[in-house]
Design a protein around this nucleic acid. Structure first.
Lengths: 150, 150
DNA sequence: ATTGCGGATGCAATTTTGTTGCATTAGTGC
DNA sequence: GCACTAATGCAACAAAATTGCATCCGCAAT
């Protein structure tokens, strides 16, 4: 099993959730704790199984989906599809500002890494086009997957 | 819709399939032709819809899955999960380099436009990371949708 | 503490995406 | 043309993710 190294104090988790302007519920606390304790990006099923072994009341499948999506929209987690096409969730590293830099997505494990590089300037658009948003998607393999793959 | 510029001669496709040591069937020819004509990696559903509009007998959903997987195992196509977790297929050995320009996706009509702008330089990666690909996804509205929307 | 509001949850049902089994069809070499 | 078998089509299945709605509970005002 994955070693549980980075267990966050419950207080940190609660204040992180509260700081995002939402209610502190068991589902959110436990899901975020599981994400932070995990040593690699987890699928919904893996998180569900982890939480099921916790001697607390089980969390509904759908609720877990919604909690995970909320964590992402709150900036507390990242969501990315792995090589099999299933979503993997990982805890966002605290103290990192997520505007103004680029994300690297590992196609092997689905992990998201923050690069120091600033985002590129928007290219010139032809007449009439209206710019909505821009996403520089860098894909590749993280060091661990590079080793495991060979 | 995306313009169909890069249609391969049917003979090329047939010999490519034959060279892979397999039978030349309508499903394989049409699927590979659709992939080569596409201006961006296509999902199974998109390819299916494209082929359905072709006034030929429809190709079964499962057959298309198997054909696409076969094209990949034969080295004629590539398969990769996109950000939504859906597999996208693209023709291998592209005569058209799709790494040499940027795509603009209209959030209104879903159309994809190829911009002339060169892609930004790849940011420096930390040690151990292997760069797989880079996609600058620009979203917004195309001129027609800008007019229709206001 | 009590109460009320609305966000959060649980449950059922549905959609989307992809796979497996098997009988039938059709491409290819002869 | 004929036979052999890869390839197809159909049905059923399975996994992953979403939607609708009634109920519950965190939390702030009282």
């Amino acid at each position: 099993m994955a070693p549980m190294k980075n267990a966050s104090p419950v207080g940190d988790i609660q204040s992180a959730i509260r700081a995002a302007g939402a209610r502190v519920t068991p589902a959110r606390v436990r899901a975020l704790a599981a994400l932070r304790a995990a040593s690699s990006p987890q699928t919904h099923a893996e998180i569900e199984e982890t939480l099921a072994q916790e001697a607390h009341p089980a969390i509904d499948r759908v609720t877990l989906y919604r909690v995970l999506d909320w964590l992402c929209s709150a900036g507390l987690a990242h969501k990315a599809a792995d090589a099999r096409g299933v979503f993997r969730f990982s805890a966002a590293q605290p103290n990192v500002e997520h505007a103004g830099h680029v994300h690297f997505r590992c196609t092997g494990c689905g992990g998201v890494f923050c690069l120091k590089s600033p985002p590129p300037p928007a290219p010139a658009l032809p007449r009439g086009f209206r710019l909505g948003g821009m996403a520089l998607d860098i894909r590749g393999e993280c060091p661990r997957c590079v080793r495991a793959h060979s």
